[in-house]
């Protein structure tokens, strides 16, 4: 995605900080995170549980208050206090798809209500218009229009996740945050949902922030990937670059943990375990820097030199 560098970013996150806990015992969940997301791309955010990847997603849609830094959407600041009109506009333009389709749908509401609930916030629609919108959204995600009068428990996991996607689509968003949309699904259904997401992206030019813990899935769908560890992004690169030349030891550990459906590779695989103590940051603090175009890594000077050497040694693809 070399062309993405000269385009205007859709979303800019600058030195984002999110802190939980009381003033006396603050817990920084996200610490000094910066990245850009360009229009039309899929940006993967990968990390283990507790690394703060969901917190970033929630900070963008203004569920979690930001305690430092800022988030800009199309050049406008959207973190902190913003005007009511902007807030309303953002609710429409930025939508979210959740992880567990069993928990994220209201069990007591019909599909038509679940899908169209967001519309109530933006202007009045007649009943007929509402139903038309619901039917359109359902057929966009490959469900039958008559499903609108059913309840969520009548559907399988994959169908429920489609309902979750329809709920996001009905608002005609520009930007969708997909928070582990497939980790609760079976392998065969994962493929369906992944295909649906990439088809929708092509048709509507959507931009995704795809949050997951499984690098193999993220590799399949993302253009660029950021690896986050303990609230700090440690490496960011284009997908193939990251897989071909991982630099940060944590990225390597994550890559080595991907299960491969190949017995001979898998049986002699060496698992890399990441130990944060391996960095010597006593003399020099690590900084976030661009080691080659589009490839960022968190390192201090001695490490940077080491990484540069590694990059030169490896033949470029």
């Amino acid at each position: 995605m070399s062309e993405s560098t000269n385009r205007e970013p859709l979303l800019e996150v600058r030195n984002l900080k999110v802190t939980f806990g009381s003033k006396r015992h603050p817990f920084p969940a996200v610490n000094d995170v910066s990245f850009d997301i360009y229009p039309g791309e899929t940006f993967g955010l990968v990390g283990e549980s507790g690394s703060g990847k969901t917190t970033i997603g929630r900070a963008i849609i203004r569920i979690n208050p930001v305690s430092g830094g800022e988030i800009r959407y199309k050049g406008q600041t959207i973190s902190g206090k913003i005007s009511r009109e902007l807030d309303r506009e953002l609710t429409r333009k930025i939508q979210m798809i959740f992880q567990d389709p069993m928990a994220s749908l209201n069990e007591r509401a019909k599909v038509s209500y679940i899908v169209s609930e967001g519309l109530n916030n933006c202007g009045h629609l007649s009943e007929a218009e509402r139903m038309r919108a619901v039917e359109k959204a359902l057929s966009d995600v490959g469900l039958l229009p008559e499903f609108a009068s059913r309840f969520p428990h009548e559907f399988s996991g994959g169908q429920r996740q489609r309902i979750g996607i329809a709920r996001a689509l009905i608002m005609q968003p520009e930007f969708i945050i997909a928070d582990e949309p497939i980790s609760a699904l079976d392998v065969s259904i994962r493929a369906q949902v992944l295909n649906l997401l990439s088809r929708l992206q092509k048709e509507r030019g959507l931009t995704y922030l795809f949050i997951a813990h499984d690098l193999s899935v993220v590799r399949f769908i993302s253009d660029r990937i950021a690896v986050i560890h303990k609230g700090v992004i440690v490496e960011l690169a284009e997908t193939e670059q990251l897989f071909a030349h991982p630099l940060h030891p944590y990225t390597r550990a994550l890559l080595s943990a991907i299960p491969m459906p190949d017995p001979s590779i898998e049986k002699k695989k060496q698992l890399i375990v990441y130990d944060p103590g391996q960095h010597d940051y006593s003399k020099e603090k690590p900084v976030w820097c661009e080691i080659e175009p589009g490839h960022f890594v968190l390192a201090n000077q001695p490490e940077l030199e080491e990484y540069r050497r590694q990059l030169e040694e490896k033949p470029q693809k």
Binding site: S156, V187, S188, I189, R190, A191, Q192, L194, N195, S198, S216, V217, R219, F220, I221, T239, I258, P259, M260, P261
Partner: peptide, 23 residues
Amino acid sequence: WALLSSLPQLGTKGEELFSIPGT
């Protein structure tokens, strides 16, 4: 065959991932 080909590890980016039709 279907189970193996629906694994994202085997998919090629930008192409449709194989998915098993029906239920």
